[in-house]
Design a protein around this nucleic acid. Structure first.
Lengths: 196, 196
DNA sequence: TGTACATCAGTGAACGCGCGTTCACTGATGTAC
DNA sequence: TGTACATCAGTGAACGCGCGTTCACTGATGTAC
């Protein structure tokens, strides 16, 4: 082991990131991260002011992952001759990807949203909020959504998708069967699309 | 101080309940509760198997309070000659009350939903889920909502209202101005109502 | 009505734990002359 | 090219803390006879 780690900051974030995946944000612990990196506890303070700063870095990475999954699922959508249909499908797909992320990566999902201080839209690549607004803008461009209904649409779409994600994973809907969950998800997406 | 407290279980729940109000579920701590009740730490184990059981009791009380606020706000709705209008107003009002609770009692709100083990619909008086379903049933009764659109409607309504609550209080929308928040809330409710 | 005794609801002391953080330090690295 | 030295990135030991939980116990209560 060399005296200098080489990339300790990254190693600490990555270790904490893996912990968050399995056990959520509360399990992110400075000492555990340094242990995983094979380094003394106080070495972390060369790279982070305190635990909070480490957690923020982890949360950012979680948000990035969420955005990546949304992009991935959208890229799998087949072309559609009708631009209106296509735009709706893209919106729905991004919403489904969001929910999929919450269900399959609950620890990361909770970390991404349970952490207070993420600067509003620090330039994260693949920012989920940015993806959503672009999908909604696209609906307006193709004439699927009247421009006067556009303002605030991101709040309605985001709230619905986020809400069902939270209820299904952390909340009281967690013990629905998988079929019931799928039904609930479809209903949510359908109602929002109809209401926009 | 008598040797027997008289109502220790209640005193512990109440102390923890107050802590949850200010600092959220993670701040609920057995030792602190016993301290507040003026009793030794292990006395708690006469009434709860472990910390989790105390937290569950607190979460239940939080859910109750949420339901109470919903009932209260609905009771303030003036009579309306048109039963359809009235039914819609009741639904919207219950949703607004839910969001109001999340914004004004964030600690309790997070406790109510951050805790895993609440038995699904243990008979809580004023159960919020029950209130929602009754409001939706009422919409069908007065002919405002076609019966075939009723199934799953509670998921759509709940998800939207819960989602905006979470985003505004714990999430990335927390630093919107109050006007922007109110705008977002109205848009969410409007879209859901239109989409149901 | 009085009393023995089971039961209930507390006490007191201690356990092991792991955390965040600070202190004074030292080994490795890179740069100026 | 060689070397002095500032700076960077770690170490080691310790701090105070508060937690959940267990142990063996004791004081208060209520009930059967």
């Amino acid at each position: 082991m060399p005296y200098h780690h080489g990339n300790l900051r990254e190693a600490l974030v990555e270790a904490a990131f893996l912990t968050a995946r399995e056990e959520g944000p509360d399990a992110v612990v400075l000492r555990a991260a340094t242990r995983a990196a094979g380094v003394s506890p106080n070495a972390a303070y060369r790279h982070f002011a305190d635990r909070e700063e480490l957690l923020t870095a982890v949360a950012e990475r979680c948000t990035e992952r969420l955005g990546e999954l949304m992009i991935k699922r959208m890229s799998e959508v087949p072309e559609d001759p009708d631009p209106v249909t296509h735009a709706w499908t893209m919106l729905t797909t991004s919403g489904l990807a969001y929910i999929e992320f919450a269900r399959t990566e609950t620890g990361w999902f909770r970390t991404a949203f349970g952490t207070v201080s993420h600067d509003p839209h620090l330039e994260i690549p693949n920012d989920p909020y940015g993806i959503l607004t672009r999908n909604l803008d696209r609906l307006v461009e193709v004439g699927a959504l009247p421009a006067e209904r556009r303002p605030g649409a991101e709040y309605a779409a985001w709230a619905a998708v986020h809400g069902i994600s939270a209820l299904l994973t952390e909340g009281p809907l967690a013990d629905l069967s998988d079929e019931e969950k799928d039904g609930a998800i479809n209903k949510v997406l359908e109602v929002v699309a109809a209401g926009l």
